[in-house]
Design a protein around this nucleic acid. Structure first.
Lengths: 161, 161
DNA sequence: CGATCTATTTATAACCA
DNA sequence: TTGGTTATAAATAGATC
């Protein structure tokens, strides 16, 4: 028996496509997990399955936790300090690039970015078994997030004199 | 010659680990791309490489674009209008709810979530070759993001009677 | 559908230039 | 280190239950 050499194109047959999707999704996630384990790096994969429940998948809830943990290993003080630095830095940057951003405002990019944020949040929800809404909540009350938002608003206000 | 059957554990030897990382990273990204092509689904992978330049990797800039596109679709006018309304609205609310937010300040989850948001944003920056700072800014002026924030704040207000 | 079972195609670990 | 090469381990398309 000769098997197909996998033509790299959309699989027309729905049954076959779904089957392939399931198999490959599994394989992909496994690969992600192996990579993180073998090489000690953080990685994750996000897959939007029209088949399965919904837009889901990470290496695993456990894996996600590992991906997210371990970054900030600063002390509380360092964190606050850095955060402050970054705030003022950001403020400057925002001023400098506002004109550029204007151009992008109504671009399709906004849609893209919005979706990405959503996806991230839905990822968060899997980390702690939260509902999507709770995760959003939590995300939005994050210090950093609020600071950023606050700065942005302040800037817009000034701009609008 | 007999080759290893791949023990699923951290590779101690740095040279070997780095080599494996490079190969597997490549393979993983290829798999992601194949999955999206073959099955017509959106997927992406994020890898934090301590070796390569930095915390990067997606299927590809092109792939990322495809992953993110296709969602929300407001008209130009509605978008601008909403954004303006929300700016002033948000400012008030943020001031009023700041004390409640204090409580969450030192939660570990916050660190994780903050980091995740950062990661997402850094992902955004690769999409359009923006600096990290620009991407953050862009993220925050997203309509949807503002809406979510607005709702959250409203909720906190009611809750705090 | 979902689970199994091969035949093949792929991905790679170990080498080597 | 950065790439090829090759022997094996893995992944998986297609068929079957």
């Amino acid at each position: 028996m000769t098997r197909n050499k996998v033509k790299l194109e959309f699989i027309a047959n729905e049954t076959a496509r779904k089957s392939t999707f399931k198999k490959r999704k599994k394989g992909l996630l496994k690969k992600v997990e192996e990579l993180t384990t073998l090489c000690g790096v953080d990685a994750c994969a996000i897959i939007y399955s029209p088949y399965d429940g919904r837009t889901e998948a990470w290496p695993s809830p456990t894996g996600a936790r590992r991906v997210l943990g371990r970054f900030m290993s600063f002390s509380q003080e360092d964190q606050e300090k850095k955060m402050l630095d970054q705030e003022s830095y950001l403020k400057q940057r925002i001023a400098k690039t506002s004109s550029q951003l204007e151009k992008l405002k109504n671009d399709n990019r906004e849609k893209e970015i919005t979706e990405l944020m959503y996806d991230c949040i839905s990822g968060i929800s899997t980390v702690d078994n939260l509902t999507l809404e709770d995760a959003m909540d939590l995300s939005l009350v994050t210090n950093k997030g609020l600071e950023m938002i606050s700065q942005r608003i302040e800037f817009l206000q000034k701009k609008g004199h």
